[in-house]
Amino acid sequence: MPLSKQEWLNLEKKANELRNLCLDTTYWAGSGHIGGGMSVMDIMTVCYHKYMHIKVEEPNWEDRDRFILSKGHAGIAYAPVLCDLGFNDKEMLKTFNLSGSKMGMHFDSNKVVGVDASTGSLGHGLSIGVGTALAARLLKKDYKTFVVLGDGELDEGSNWEAAMSAAHYKLTNLITFVDRNHNMIDGPTEEVMALEPLADKWEAFGFIVKKIDGNNIKELCEAIDFAYANETDKPVLILCDTVKGCGIDFIEGDFRWHYGAFDDAKYESGKKALEETYKKRVERVEKEAE
């Protein structure tokens, strides 16, 4: 399904709203994993607002598409997505990370409505996704499983166990994203523990790799369309080249913003930066839309 100009604009608008809510949540909480939250936001926006079949009024609908945020620390970005959809009250965002809140940094799937897996400990999500994808096959369900991995978390060997099994079981109902924002807590990924050549690694593990700009909504849609149209027996991995902190210029690409705090001044600058980003993105749509 090709992306119409209006649809693209709508998705940009939604991504911008969600980025703003992510910044708000970080500000309300005092701090948060905003770097990786901003890098993954376009992936989540496109999945939830263009592709996934879900029922907000029936969160455990057994035919729903599954979304597993393996990089669970991006809860600060996932919270706005789930609250904006109506799975949870938007007021809950103001309690994020606060004592007694249902929403901590990493979500408990038994507490936060709409969450398909409790993640946070890295290297778990793809295995769980393999499980839900295998279950779909066995139960003769058409749902798809979307798994989002961080790039830093790929250091965990369990991902590669899971990758091997996804290919072994020919899980074409599983769509895996890597949010390749090039940074982790202690520094750039290539300095801490080199991942490249990352696409080759996934290909060697039996995936079809689609390498895209993961902060480009059009490219994301094209990649997911490609995965939907996949008629081979190999699972698709969408390697999303992203920018850590994407949308807020003064934190972009800086590993130190893996987790950070926003005071009043920074918050105001962040809001302005997001406004600028949105303007540029709309201009791009006007120029590039078919």
């Binding site: 799937s109 499980g131 994808a133 279950a135 166990e161 091997m164 099994s165 072994h168």
Partner: peptide
Amino acid sequence: DRFFNVGIAEQNMFGVAAGMAKAGL
């Protein structure tokens, strides 16, 4: 069809089982 040998990969086995259980198996 209901038997899954994931190879020598216990961590993956536990995650896969969790996903399956979440889906009703």
